[in-house]
């Protein structure tokens, strides 16, 4: 699943190394346009619903954080 997630992230922002980056939001690497595209793609690919309540910097600062959020939603 992590590999699929990395593919989605790279497709939206090919210029970012998502495997290493750990301050995607705090470091200003991703902006709101990116987050909206990423969330939309994740909702579609993993059949989850990341809604407004989950749009917090800590959930999107790294690929690992996003992965953990998806796992949490899949487990609900």
């Amino acid at each position: 699943m992590m590999e699929e997630l990395l593919n989605i992230l790279s497709e939206i922002r090919p210029d970012v190394d998502f495997e290493k980056a750990d301050a995607l939001i705090d470091g200003g690497i991703l902006d709101s346009f990116d987050i909206i595209s990423i969330v939309g793609e994740i909702n579609n690919a993993f059949d989850v619903e990341i809604n407004v309540e989950y749009l917090l910097p800590e959930n999107f600062n790294s690929a690992k954080a996003i992965y953990e959020l998806v796992c949490k939603l899949l487990d609900e």
Binding site: I36, S37, G40, E41, N43, N44, I50, N51
Partner: peptide, 11 residues
């Protein structure tokens, strides 16, 4: 805004 922008059709 969020439901449409993160929705299937817009994506």
């Amino acid at each position: 805004f969020y439901p449409i922008s993160m929705g299937k059709w817009a994506q």
